[in-house]
Structure formats: structure tokens, C-alpha cells
Design a protein around this nucleic acid. Structure first.
Length: 291
DNA sequence: ACCCAGGCGGGCG
DNA sequence: CGCCCGCATGGG
């Protein structure tokens, strides 16, 4: 782990891939394609980050700390790459998306986004999240003190929402899950208090939330708590792992978890992110070639 | 018209 | 334990 680094080296951070790769920031943050800058809400302030991971907007130590944690600035990604470069598929995925980093977001933001993700698509998750922010989020201010939209609504704000109101934001059948999760996380479970616990404990606690199953719990553990050994298995990961590593034979999620843990160990979550994002385009050419 | 999308809970054998 | 089903909604 390198110390004292205030910005990421070129090649270690690709801000566009990081933003686009269907992580929480994709859903509640924004990306300026010409300036190559991400903006996102944090503690009622607008935070702006450039392609080197430098903070351009947002005052205070809390903001600086959040940026460093959120983009994993002090992480040695070269070490992780060598750990997950187990074969040609992994090397190709890293080559294609070099600099794509896992983000480490706030637990509740991550929970909200991935409850919405179930049986849904990336574009729609983003649209729904944006609508919930507009309707239920607290206002966020830029460095000049001007209002710059709303933040992600906390569990308190959503616990009193009506199912019908959430559905009018497009949540569909996920409305009831979101409300019960908000109630649970604003009364029984303080998500932030889980931060110091280990991966299995966190996952078990998360799965007590109505609407959070195995896959969503792994996503929250990975992208909301930074547990890099978590390996979320969605439909893409399942069929990609089966195709690449099991000659297309069906494998249960339990066996895929075992496989990922043995193969990529403490960095399985990073492997998962690269398999997921690279594999979606790989799948199209592979299936057309093998028909 | 039909199919699918970063799943989950509930019911069944 | 594994399997099957329904579920809201919008885009291809």
C-alpha cells in the first residue's frame, strides 16, 4: 500500500470506465464526458473529482476522505491485477478496461441502488434512482453555495414513503422492498455500524433485510463495505463463468462461489467486476461464433 | 407481439 | 437442498 499519494497515476485510474461500469456512482452520480470529471452528492455538498482522483469541488477533510475511500486511491491496483490475471480471459478483460476501479460507496446508497437492480436493467435503475433523489433527497450545494440538485435519500426519508408514491417513481414491485429496507435500516439496523465487521458477518446481517438476497448482499458487501472477497453472482456472471471455466456446463451459485474463492481469493470481487463488464460484449461475439 | 433486464420471496417436492 | 413461479416497467 503506497502512502502519501494524493492522486492516481495515469493508467491506474480510468474515470470513464469506473463511472460507466454499473456501480452505485453510475446511478446517483454524473459524468462530464468533455471535462472527464465525476460529480456526486455527499453530506449535502456536491463533490467533483477529476481523472487523477483529485478533488476539484467540495470542502473539508470529510470530503477528501470520502474521495480517497470511494475511488480507492491508495490501493495498489497492480498487485490486484497480478492476483486476478489467472488466464487469457482475465488478461483480456483487464487489457480492455485497464484503470476501471471498484468504488467504495456508502452502505445505504449501495443498498438502495442494488435493491432497485433486481430484475431490472442499468439504464432504468439510473432513471429510478434519479427520480427518488429529486423527490425524496435533501438539497445539495456546490462550492459557490448554489443548489445543485438533491442527494440520495436516506432510510429515514424513505421509511415513511407510500408504496404508490414510490411506484410513481418507477420502482415497480421493488417499492415494498425499498420501504421495508428503509424502515429496518432506520430503526433496527445501523448500516454504518457494520463497517468494522468481517465479510461473512456483514453478508449475514444484510440478508436480514427484506428484498436483499445472496446477490444483492454481495454487491453491498463489495461496493458498500469494500469487502473485495465478495463475488456477486448475477445472470451474467453465472453464464459467463459457466461458459469460460466450465465448458458451458451448468453450475449452482454455491459451486461458483467456491470456484471464485479458490481462484481469486481475496480479490474475487475485482475479478467479478472485470468479468461482468468485459464479459457482456465478449458473450455476444462468443455466442455468434459458437452457433 | 414477444423477450429481456446486475433477483427475490414463497411454495413445493 | 433444488426447482419453479410471479412480479412492474420500459426498451429493443
Amino acid at each position: 500500500m503506497m502512502r502519501g499519494r494524493t492522486q492516481m497515476k495515469t493508467g491506474q485510474f480510468d474515470i470513464m470506465h469506473t463511472f460507466e461500469s454499473a456501480q452505485p456512482l453510475t446511478f446517483f452520480g454524473d459524468y462530464d464526458y468533455s471535462r472527464k470529471e465525476i460529480t456526486y452528492p455527499f453530506m449535502r455538498r456536491l463533490v467533483r473529482v477529476d481523472r487523477f482522483g483529485r478533488v476539484l469541488e467540495g470542502q473539508g477533510a470529510a470530503v477528501k476522505d470520502d474521495v480517497a475511500r470511494r475511488f480507492r486511491i491508495n490501493e495498489d491496483i497492480g498487485k490486484i491485477y497480478s492476483g486476478i490475471s489467472t488466464d487469457g480471459f482475465m488478461r483480456d478483460s483487464i487489457k480492455e478496461y485497464t484503470g476501471m476501479r471498484l468504488t467504495h460507496n456508502l452502505p445505504w446508497e449501495t443498498t438502495l441502488v442494488f435493491i432497485l437492480s433486481q430484475f431490472n436493467n442499468v439504464k432504468r435503475i439510473r432513471a429510478i434512482t434519479k427520480r427518488l433523489m429529486e423527490r425524496y433527497g435533501d438539497p445539495v450545494f456546490d462550492s459557490k453555495g448554489n443548489r445543485a440538485g438533491n442527494g440520495v435519500p436516506g432510510p429515514e426519508a424513505l421509511s415513511s414513503a407510500k408504496v404508490g408514491d414510490l411506484m410513481s417513481c418507477g420502482t415497480g414491485f421493488r417499492a415494498k422492498y425499498l420501504i421495508s429496507a428503509a424502515e429496518y435500516c432506520s430503526s433496527s439496523l445501523d448500516l454504518d455500524s457494520l463497517s468494522g465487521k468481517d465479510y461473512p458477518s456483514i453478508k449475514n446481517e444484510l440478508m436480514e433485510i427484506d428484498g436483499v438476497g445472496d446477490k444483492v448482499a454481495d454487491c453491498i458487501a463489495l461496493m458498500g463495505y469494500g469487502k473485495l472477497e465478495a463475488f456477486p453472482i448475477d445472470t451474467w456472471i453465472k453464464r459467463l463463468v459457466e461458459a469460460v471455466y466450465f465448458r458451458g456446463r451448468k453450475r449452482s451459485p454455491r459451486r461458483i462461489h467456491e470456484f471464485a474463492s479458490e481462484r481469486w481469493g481475496a480479490y474475487a470481487g475485482y475479478a467479478q467486476q472485470y468479468i461482468f463488464w468485459y464479459g457482456r460484449s465478449w458473450w455476444k461475439t462468443w455466442t455468434s461464433k459458437n452457433r
